[in-house]
């Protein structure tokens, strides 16, 4: 009946929408692999080349930028995993005075994120002499209210009987955390890590303010400097650099697509 026709129409509509949505990105990728003279004139049979990537890689210290970004996300991720675990564990397993008030104070960071406080945070950093350093970029992000919230929700689901059984066996606070709470929260750690890595790989405004010298710039800041200054605004070069700096995330996403989406969902819903 008309059901079959409907389905064909709807499929076509969906395919067109999806194709249009991807068009700016696909065109950017296409330009990155073609000579500059084709960037303003699309020709479907233009010859492919990787010269833009080689030229862009040499025109700016992208290897330094990559290294800085890796250091930055590693510092933040490790600090987040440890610090958020400790706080969440304290809130779930113990009772103490002002616990509710303290938790509310922590959750303030969800609303007033470090990006909004760039003015005063920059003054703090310059007072302690940490501007233009990677640790300076990382400092405001070392504890995350989002991470604390997520882990607290997860730890709350750990059965009390498991905890008590371990205590009877003579396990102390740290053994209980390490052998019971952390293993049970494993999927959440994975989800949180993915969110954290992609957030800090992509973060721009704060690193832009804090850094001055190429030696400490992360990829995003390096890319923006390249796109406006170093490239002489040759579009094929800019597109090649853009693709190059985001490629690791894109490849990781395509490989881990299923887990990534599932984990994003879990991170968002709980």
């Amino acid at each position: 009946m008309s059901n079959g026709l409907n389905k064909i129409l709807l499929s076509t509509f969906a395919a067109v929408i999806a194709a249009l949505w991807a068009l700016p990105f696909i065109y950017s990728v296409w330009t990155a692999f073609h000579d500059e003279k084709y960037s303003a004139n699309f020709q479907w049979d233009a010859p492919w080349t990787i010269a833009n990537f080689l030229e862009a890689w040499q025109a700016a210290p992208f290897s330094v930028y990559f290294f800085n970004t890796l250091i930055l996300i590693t510092i933040i991720l490790i600090a987040n995993l440890i610090l958020c675990t400790l706080v969440a564990y304290a809130f779930v397993r113990y009772k103490f005075r002002w616990a509710g008030f303290l938790f509310a104070l922590i959750m303030v960071q969800l609303l007033i994120s470090p990006e909004i406080l760039i003015v005063e945070n920059y003054l703090t950093l310059s007072r302690v002499g940490l501007t233009d350093t990677i640790i300076g970029i990382a400092l405001p992000y070392l504890t995350s209210a989002f991470g604390i919230f997520l882990l607290r929700q997860t730890f709350l689901t750990v059965p009390k009987s498991l905890d008590e059984a371990a205590q009877i066996e003579g396990a102390g606070a740290w053994r209980v955390l390490w052998n019971i709470y952390v293993p049970l929260a494993w999927p959440i750690y994975l989800a949180y890590s993915l969110v954290s890595i992609s957030f800090h790989w992509n973060n721009f405004l704060w690193p832009l303010i804090v850094t001055n010298s190429p030696e400490v710039r992360p990829l995003t800041v390096g890319l923006s400097v390249f796109a406006t200054v170093d490239s002489g605004v040759e579009w094929s070069l800019v597109n090649a650099a853009t693709l190059m700096t985001t490629a690791p995330l894109i490849i990781a996403f395509i490989i881990f697509q299923r887990q990534f989406v599932a984990n994003f969902m879990r991170a968002g819903i709980k």
């Binding site: 990105f25 960037s39 800019v238 700096t245």
Partner: peptide, 18 residues
């Protein structure tokens, strides 16, 4: 979902060109 994965800087470059 692809645009979400890209840094805003990359997105800005792509659209600047577009």
């Amino acid at each position: 979902f692809m645009p979400t994965m890209l840094p805003m800087i990359a997105v800005a470059n792509i659209w600047l060109f577009f």
